[in-house]
Design a protein around this nucleic acid. Sequence first.
DNA 1: AACTTTGTTCGGTATATTACGAACAAGGAA
DNA 2: TTCCTTGTTCGTAATATACCGAACAAAGTT
Lengths: 99, 99
Amino acid sequence: MIKKETITEKQEKTARYAKAMGHPIRMYVLELLSKQSCCYSGDLTEELPIVKSTLSQHLKELKDVGLIQGEIEAPRIKYCINKENWKEAQLLFTELFES
Amino acid sequence: MIKKETITEKQEKTARYAKAMGHPIRMYVLELLSKQSCCYSGDLTEELPIVKSTLSQHLKELKDVGLIQGEIEAPRIKYCINKENWKEAQLLFTELFES
DNA sequence: AACTTTGTTCGGTATATTACGAACAAGGAA
DNA sequence: TTCCTTGTTCGTAATATACCGAACAAAGTT
């Protein structure tokens, strides 16, 4: 965490979102969920060249940063975009690119 | 590098840009350059809480991914946005968030 | 209760990232 | 030529990331 007021909270937040998006697997999941409303991680394990434990870690990262959310639908978990934060990220990136 | 056609080239590229943007220092530099047309890294060293060698590494990363470019203006180097790639990144992120 | 399915956590390993200071290179100024 | 300024590269260290397989936990099925 940078502590010198040169860097704004906004920049920190944008960077945090960008970092979470900075991996092909996570980018894939985000794009999928942004078009498809929801998915189950079992589906992802089949499509993606990684084992479930690794996928779980990537999903956790996306959850931790707030870009997705999971809802238990036993025995599976349904993932979707966290619309509020997704919108925030969209705004942050739009502002960045338009300035 | 993921090699299983699930993940598209576009997603790989977007993730690559996102990763480069995924650090507060680099985000700061990008935002500055996107509004200000150019800057010199000496200015950045004064504003930012890092030493010049660390800054040099961050700038190299942004250069390597193609988001900025440097022009020698001895004895300094003038940095600006690489407009072509910046536009590409903008497009990729816009598409991602709008889909 | 025993089994199955689904996903997380743990332990371990390999590689990448971030950071610093020292040393080096390039070029202008004295 | 000898400084000085600027920025890169090198060596090093601490921490983070990415990945796997095995073990574990939760909850529905048989």
